[in-house]
Design a binder for these strands. Sequence first.
DNA 1: CAATTAAGGTACATGATGTATCTTATTTCC
DNA 2: GGAAATAAGATACATCATGTACCTTAATTG
Lengths: 197, 197
Amino acid sequence: MKSERRRGEELEKAILDAAYEIIETSGYEEMTFQRVARQAQTSRTVIYRRYETPVDLLHALVLYRSTRAMGGRMIDLFRDQGSLRADLLEVVGIYQRFFDAVGQKLMSAVMTEFSRNYERFRDWFERALDSNVRMMKIVEANAKRRGEITHDFTEMQMRLPFDLLRIENVIRHERVTAAYLTRLVDEVLLPVFSKKH
Amino acid sequence: MKSERRRGEELEKAILDAAYEIIETSGYEEMTFQRVARQAQTSRTVIYRRYETPVDLLHALVLYRSTRAMGGRMIDLFRDQGSLRADLLEVVGIYQRFFDAVGQKLMSAVMTEFSRNYERFRDWFERALDSNVRMMKIVEANAKRRGEITHDFTEMQMRLPFDLLRIENVIRHERVTAAYLTRLVDEVLLPVFSKKH
DNA sequence: CAATTAAGGTACATGATGTATCTTATTTCC
DNA sequence: GGAAATAAGATACATCATGTACCTTAATTG
C-alpha cells in the first residue's frame, strides 16, 4: 500500500516541479513560497524546512534540472572536432544545450538574482567560469597541435563565447538557432581566436 | 514666503532622489512605493498618481539621471580619434561613462526588469541599440576612409562593444577601469573589426 | 476670491513573509 | 511488533507592501 504522505525525494521533486511550473507560466516573481506550497499540494512549512529563501529554492532547481538534462559536466561532453572552427562550434553548441536544458526563464531568474545578490552566487559562478575556461584551453591546445595558431588565448577572450550566449539567452531573450551559432563563430569568435599578432 | 507643500517638478525630483537613494543603499527590491514615500516625506498616494508600478518609476529615474549626467545623446559626444583603434577606445569610453553616470545598481535593476518584462523595455532598448549601431557605423566609415579596412561590419559585430560592457557592468559587477577598456579593444574588438577575409 | 488642481491623510481587503506551536503520519530500529 | 524519532501537515499571528477608495487641505489659476 502506498503511503498518503509524500516524503524525502518524492516530495522534494514535487516541490521543485511546482516551482518550475510557476516560473515557466507566471514568471519568477510569482514563485512565492505560498504559491509553490499550493501548487505542490503541501504546506508552506515544508518548504521553509528545506529552503531559507526563494533564492535557495531557485539554486536547487537549477542544479536539479541541469544535472538531470545534461547528464554530466559540459567539459566531459566536448569532443575534438578536427579544426578550430569546428571546435568553437562545438563549444557554443554545448553551452547552448545547457541553456536549453535548464530553460531561459530559469536562467533569467538566476541572472536576476546574481545581479541582485552577487555574493550568493559568486562561488557557483566562479566554478562555472573555471569549467568554461578549461574547455577553451582544450580548444587552444587542439589548435596549437594542429598548427592553426601559435599564440595563447587570453582570459578575456576565453570568456567571450559564454558571455555572448548569456547575453543572447538571458538579456535579449532570443531563441538561439544553429544559424546564430554559426554566425557567432564566423563573425566574432574565429576572428578573435585565429588572429595572429 | 515659500510654500509648505512641494509640487510639480520639485516634488518629482524629491521622489526620484529618494528612489535612487534607496536603490543605492538597500537595492532595487527594497524600492517599494511605501519606502519611497516615507523617504521623500510624502504619501504613497502621490507616488501612485505619477507611476503605475515601480518599473515606471525606475524608467523615469534612469531617464532623469542619464540626461542630467551625460548632457546629451552618446552619438553626439563621439569625435573622430584618427585611427580605428582610437575610435574603438572612444566608443567604449563613452559607453562606460554612460554606465558610470546612471550608476551600476540602477542599470542592474533595469536589466532585471528587462529580463523579467521584455515588452516593457523593448522600445527603449531598440532605440538604444539603434543609436549604438549608428555610432559604430561612423567608426566603420572613418576606418574605410582612412583605408584601414575595406569590408563592412556586421550587425552582430557592431553590438559587440556594448554587449561586453553590459556584461561587465551589470552581470559581473566589476568596476571597469581604463586598463580594462584597453584590453577589451586590443584583445577582442580590434581583431574582430580589423579582420580581413 | 472662487474654482480647480494636486498634495496629504486614512482606511481596508488582499496576499506574502517569517516564526511558533501543535497534531498526525511514517520510518527506524531495538 | 511497538516505542521513539522524524518529518509532514495545519493553524495562527504580527508585519509589511499592495491597490484602491474617499476625504481633507493647501496652492495655483483665471
